[in-house]
């Protein structure tokens, strides 16, 4: 390998013209990922970007790395094969709410439960962009689109709850344009050994503009965003006086200093607390609660490719391993003179 100088974000820009709509949240994500990839310090060829089909899935073409724009919904399966074949690589799966949760829901489920060591970027814009504006599996009930003129009647799927059900070992949520949080979360995701799912709240300016305004709007951000910090209580609000406490076993928004509530009553964020706490965060609906942002949970579990190669390693250590002559003769044989 040639000695690589430390690469910068711009070194990861490919020569391909970026073709997203002006103002699309994807631009911010691309720039944040280019920074994150540079920050890994790994040589360029180590990064493999694999995507499916959709607006977000054009992503690999804009990265000066290895890239594979595959077929609709199946990126996790391609990535699993590539990671098993080349476990040294740093594999990124780029998908969206349609690609990953509708046509590719099955593959996403199995990627997470197997814990293949990849970073899965789930661009959630709650709409189909590339096919020009039909409702998606994360669209809210009632959403009027080209295919739902009287409003969607589909109950939306929650990526976090799906991930919980599949025992995903890492789940984070970030806003497309939040550069500061992005850097930290992508760094954590790369470090995590296993499937790191990052739900990115991405604004589609054309077909679903402002769908996350209630969370992202600067004016109300402090009231509507709950930034998770390991070991810190769940606190939010313009005055940072609000928090989440368990009242009658229910997560409840409380105000510190009111009704005898003190900081000690607040739930303390623990990424490793397990499925019960993960479920609490995943289940916090945006009507009642601020949106939990950051790493919702992260726990260590052996990665899939690591276990697969351990088995291969064990088998290779057996006497007579890898001897084709021996394998062909490994049966009742007889000699014809």
């Amino acid at each position: 390998m040639t000695e690589q100088p430390q690469l910068k974000a711009k070194d990861y820009k490919s020569d391909q013209e970026v073709r997203w709509c002006p103002g699309c949240g994807d631009y911010a994500i691309l720039s944040n990922i280019q920074k994150a990839v540079a920050a890994t310090g790994l040589p360029r060829e180590k990064h493999l970007f694999v995507s499916g089909i959709g607006c977000s899935s054009r992503f690999p073409f804009y990265m000066e790395t290895w890239g594979f724009h595959t077929i609709h919904g199946r990126a996790p399966a391609f990535a699993t094969g590539a990671k098993l074949q080349n476990p040294e690589s740093c594999v990124w799966v780029v998908t969206g709410d349609g690609d990953g949760l509708s046509i590719g829901g099955n593959h996403l489920l199995h990627l997470m439960r197997r814990n293949v060591d990849v970073q899965l970027l789930l661009f959630n814009n709650e709409i189909y962009g590339l096919t020009k504006g039909q409702y998606s599996p994360t669209s809210g009930v009632g959403l009027v689109t080209k295919s739902t003129p009287m409003g969607s009647i589909d109950e939306p799927v929650s990526p976090a709850r799906l991930a919980l059900g599949a025992n995903a070992s890492f789940f984070a949520r970030v806003i497309d344009t939040d550069h500061k949080s992005s850097a930290e979360i992508y760094r954590r995701a790369v470090e995590h050994k296993g499937t790191a799912v990052i739900e990115i709240l991405q604004n589609c300016v054309i077909f679903n503009d402002g769908v996350f305004d209630h969370i992202t709007d600067k004016k109300t951000a402090k009231e509507n965003q709950l930034h998770l910090v390991q070991g810190e209580p769940l606190r939010f609000g313009a005055e940072s006086d609000k928090g989440i406490a368990l009242v009658n076993n229910q997560p409840t928004v409380v105000t510190v200093g009111e009704n005898g509530i003190t900081e000690a009553d607040l739930i303390v964020h623990d990424e490793q607390a397990g499925a019960f706490y993960g479920g609490l965060l995943a289940g916090m609906d945006s009507q009642t609660f601020p949106a939990p942002l950051g790493v919702l949970w992260a726990h260590d579990r052996l990665s899939y490719e690591q276990q697969a190669h351990e088995q291969v390693g064990k088998a290779k250590a057996r006497p007579g391993a890898g001897d084709l002559h021996r394998l062909l003769h490994a049966a009742d044989t007889w000699v014809v003179e």
Binding site: L48, V50, F68, T70, I71, R74, P76, A77, F78, A79, T80, G81, A82, K83, L84, Q85, N86, S89, N106, H107, L109, H110, A308
Partner: peptide, 20 residues
């Protein structure tokens, strides 16, 4: 790799071939 379905079976193989 015992995949989750026929599609993932071939897709994983293509991914592996892509990686050599």
């Amino acid at each position: 790799f015992q995949a989750e379905d026929e599609i993932a079976g071939i897709c994983s193989a293509i991914g592996a071939a892509w990686a050599g």
